[in-house]
């Protein structure tokens, strides 16, 4: 593609193609070199050190001793580890299924509002939420005795009192529910939607396309690269979820919401830095595998 652009170059003082290509090659890399340096020194370098520590006794102070795969062997034999991986995978799947798509729809709908309403709604929908307040709020919502959810279940729907977060079977579902509203990257979709020319929709309307059809044939395909990235992000993020359970359930009941990262923190707090690092590396491998598979399946180019 680059070559064809070169041959079309009408400029008579253009340098020979190889020279131009070589120069282009170097300017291309100039774009990425600063980022590579930062990513190397502050991203990979400490991480590789950490991975290397997972093969040792990983002392906080004192002498380093090789343990090779002893830490890994210990984790493999720990019944809580496969359990934590299962919880993590189920949580990630639930969280993506339930929380990923609604914000896309909300962003599309928000763009439909008259400009003034949209300006207000946008502020209110995407107001950044503070940790303490939202935790307090959701703990209150979920309280089994006087929470709003319980009130809805018993007084409005006439059901038996529900267990919510203390039900082993449903706890992951209930942990995901707040994310339906509170999930972040809606703003990002709006940025993407704004780059869609209005004429596309007008043309579609002339062809008789309705509400859903326009979303399906114009909005979503144009958002596709953006969705590809947010989905990558969501996959990685949900597989590493920890804070939310830590605040709401502390991994309970009976470990039903203890994710891998949460177990990793438990190990850290038990002074098992080497084991914690090894567990993180195991999670790293899993996430990497999932992301690679996903990237192979989901092509992000809208023009294909």
């Amino acid at each position: 593609m680059t070559a064809s652009a070169e041959t079309l170059n009408p400029s008579s003082i253009a340098p020979p193609i190889e020279v131009a290509q070589r120069r282009r090659f170097w300017t291309n890399w100039l774009f990425v070199i600063p980022a590579m340096l930062f990513q190397f020194f502050w991203g990979w370098y400490p991480m590789v050190v950490a991975i290397f520590l997972s093969l040792t006794n990983a002392p906080i102070r004192g002498d380093l001793q090789w343990r090779w795969f002893e830490n890994y062997a210990r984790l493999v034999q720990d019944p809580l580890v496969p359990f934590a991986f299962r919880v993590t995978l189920v949580y990630a799947a639930l969280s993506i299924a339930l929380t990923f798509f609604i914000p896309i729809l909300v962003a599309i709908l928000l763009m439909e509002m008259p400009p003034k309403t949209m300006r207000i709604m946008m502020i209110l929908w995407y107001l950044p939420l503070s940790g303490i307040a939202s935790t307090l709020f959701w703990q209150y919502m979920y309280n089994e005795s006087f929470g709003i959810f319980q009130w809805i279940a018993t007084a409005v729907l006439g059901l038996e009192p529900q267990a919510f977060l203390s039900s082993e079977r449903w706890v992951l579902f209930w942990l995901v529910v707040p994310g339906i509203l509170m999930y972040g990257p809606g703003l990002y979709y709006m940025a993407g939607l704004q780059s869609i020319p209005k004429s596309y929709y007008e043309a579609a309307e002339i062809e008789g396309a309705g509400f859903w059809r326009k979303i399906w044939t114009i909005s979503l395909p144009r958002l596709r690269p953006i969705i590809a990235m947010t989905l990558t992000f969501a996959i990685i993020g949900s597989l590493q979820e920890f804070t939310w359970m830590d605040l709401m359930t502390r991994g309970g009941p009976n470990g039903a919401s203890r994710t891998v990262v949460m177990y990793m923190f438990t190990l850290l707090n038990n002074g098992r830095y080497g084991d914690a690092t090894a567990l993180a590396v195991m999670l790293f491998i899993l996430i990497m595998a999932i992301v690679l598979v996903y990237r192979a399946v989901f092509k992000s180019d809208p023009d294909v």
Binding site: M47, A50, F242, V261, A280, M288
Partner: peptide
């Protein structure tokens, strides 16, 4: 290379 570091929980490094 650029996104790989996201996949390891930051606390270990």
């Amino acid at each position: 290379f650029f996104i790989g570091t996201l996949m390891l929980p930051g606390i270990v490094s």
